[in-house]
Design a protein around this nucleic acid. Sequence first.
DNA 1: CGGGATCCCATTTGATACTG
DNA 2: CAGTATCAAATGGGATCCCG
Lengths: 136, 136
Amino acid sequence: MSFTNHDGLRPTPGECNSKLAAASDALYVIGGKWRLKIILALADGHKRFNEIQRALSGISARVLSNELKELEINGFVIRKVYTDFPVVIEYELTPYSDTLSPVLQSLIEWGEMHREKIMHEGNGQKQSAIALEETL
Amino acid sequence: MSFTNHDGLRPTPGECNSKLAAASDALYVIGGKWRLKIILALADGHKRFNEIQRALSGISARVLSNELKELEINGFVIRKVYTDFPVVIEYELTPYSDTLSPVLQSLIEWGEMHREKIMHEGNGQKQSAIALEETL
DNA sequence: CGGGATCCCATTTGATACTG
DNA sequence: CAGTATCAAATGGGATCCCG
């Protein structure tokens, strides 16, 4: 019903506001529909543009292009151009992306737990809420 | 540069795909611009509609209304109507919201860390990336 | 106060075509 | 392959009015 702080107490409004601000800062750079997914898609190694697009079914080239630029500006992704022939362009995560590990880890674990829950509750009355489209 | 799994190894593509799916499931319900912020706004106790709106500067009544409905459907928030006079309507988090604690915690910590980094790097050339609007 | 309904504009996105 | 350009369509979101 409420989160507890390190003292096991309900957080004060002041604490909550600063937490809200911190979360907002985070969401500002890694929020949105694709950011974290792109980072995850690159987590098992560098990929080329079209590989990323295939890994994240549903994203258009234009959106992927824009998101990659943003991620590069913010230091999560690096774009490497190998000028050998044929020219190969690859994207890979920077070390800074590793700092997101706890966030991604907890998000993934929560997602697995949530999916379990949704599957088991027989989908009572309200429409369930797993990423149906993604699974297609 | 890459995340490691519990064995300290780079995750395999298969592992990554299932992680991507899990993260997608999570983002499907708690993604979006406001969901997590609303939950955080309620973390220090029940609030009324307008209190939430004030806590999250920038959200319109219509959007807040829609988001609260979604959060209610998905079991994160409960809407309580006190029919005394005057009628009072309050929103509060359900116990299920507590399962998000690790996600929120890591997100908040990352946000704090990231803000520090942005502040200190003198904002070299690329535009910085903290939630400026939120701070206004 | 707590919203629902409508209108209308702005931004985002998708599809397609095109280029280096 | 790795994108960019362009146009149309969808979506988001603000403003306003209204009701209980």
